[in-house]
Amino acid sequence: VTTYKLVINGKTLKGETTTKAVDAETAEKAFKQYANDNGVDGVWTYDDATKTFTVTEMV
């Protein structure tokens, strides 16, 4: 189990959260659900070296 981080660069919501998951795919599903629940829709990137997902909403 690995800890993954999500950085949110939203128009109205900004911040970070973490989740523990067995792999990046599982973490991504959890983060996308979290973003969807919070009304964040944007471009996703993932950095495997730092285990960090970033979602950026276009203005």
Rank of each mutant, 00 (worst) to 15 (best):
V40I: 15
Y34K: 03
D47R: 03
N38I: 15
V1C: 14
K5H: 12
G15V: 15
T12I: 11
T17L: 12
K32D: 02
F53L: 01
A27E: 00
T52K: 03
Y4N: 01
E28R: 12
D23P: 01
T45F: 08
T45Y: 08
V59D: 12
N38D: 03
W44C: 02
F53V: 01
E57H: 06
G39P: 01
T12F: 14
L13M: 13
D47E: 07
V22S: 13
N38Q: 15
Y46H: 02
V22T: 15
V40L: 10
T19W: 07
K11D: 06
E16T: 15
G10M: 15
K20E: 15
V7G: 02
A21V: 04
W44Y: 02
T50Q: 06
D48V: 09
T50R: 05
A49L: 08
K51E: 04
T2S: 11
V59H: 12
D37G: 05
A30P: 02
F31K: 00
A49C: 07
V22N: 11
K29W: 07
G15L: 13
E28L: 15
V1A: 12
D47K: 03
V22Y: 10
F31H: 02
A49W: 08
T26F: 07
T26G: 07
D48S: 10
V7W: 05
T54H: 06
T26N: 08
K5S: 07
A35L: 10
I8N: 01
T26K: 06
K32C: 04
Q33H: 07
T19V: 12
F31M: 03
K20A: 15
D37V: 13
K32R: 13
N9P: 03
A35Q: 02
N9V: 15
N9M: 13
L6R: 00
K51H: 15
T52W: 02
M58R: 11
D23T: 05
A30F: 15
G10L: 12
A21I: 02
A30D: 06
V40M: 06
T3Y: 08
Y34P: 00
V1R: 05
A24Y: 13
W44M: 03
V43R: 08
L13D: 05
L13E: 07
G15S: 15
M58N: 13
T45V: 12
K5N: 06
Y46T: 01
T54K: 04
T12G: 10
E57C: 05
G39C: 07
A35V: 09
Y4F: 12
V55R: 00
D23Q: 04
N36M: 13
N38E: 08
M58C: 14
D48M: 09
K14P: 06
T54V: 06
T18K: 07
K29V: 07
T50Y: 05
T52L: 03
V40Q: 03
G10F: 13
T18L: 08
V55Y: 02
K14I: 09
G10T: 15
T54G: 03
F53Q: 00
L6P: 00
K32P: 00
F31D: 00
E28T: 04
T3A: 06
V22F: 13
Y46R: 02
T54D: 03
Y34Q: 03
A27Y: 00
A27Q: 01
T2L: 14
K20I: 15
K51I: 03
T56N: 12
V40D: 01
L6D: 00
D41M: 11
G10I: 14
G39I: 03
K51M: 07
T19S: 06
A35W: 03
V40H: 04
K32Q: 09
G10K: 05
L13I: 14
M58E: 11
Y4P: 01
A49E: 14
K5I: 13
N36E: 12
T18S: 12
K11P: 09
V43E: 11
A21T: 05
T26V: 07
T50V: 05
G15M: 15
E16Q: 15
V40P: 02
T19G: 04
K51Y: 10
Y46K: 01
A24Q: 13
T3W: 10
Y34E: 02
G15A: 13
T18D: 05
K32W: 06
N9A: 09
G15D: 11
A21S: 06
K11E: 08
V59E: 14
T52A: 03
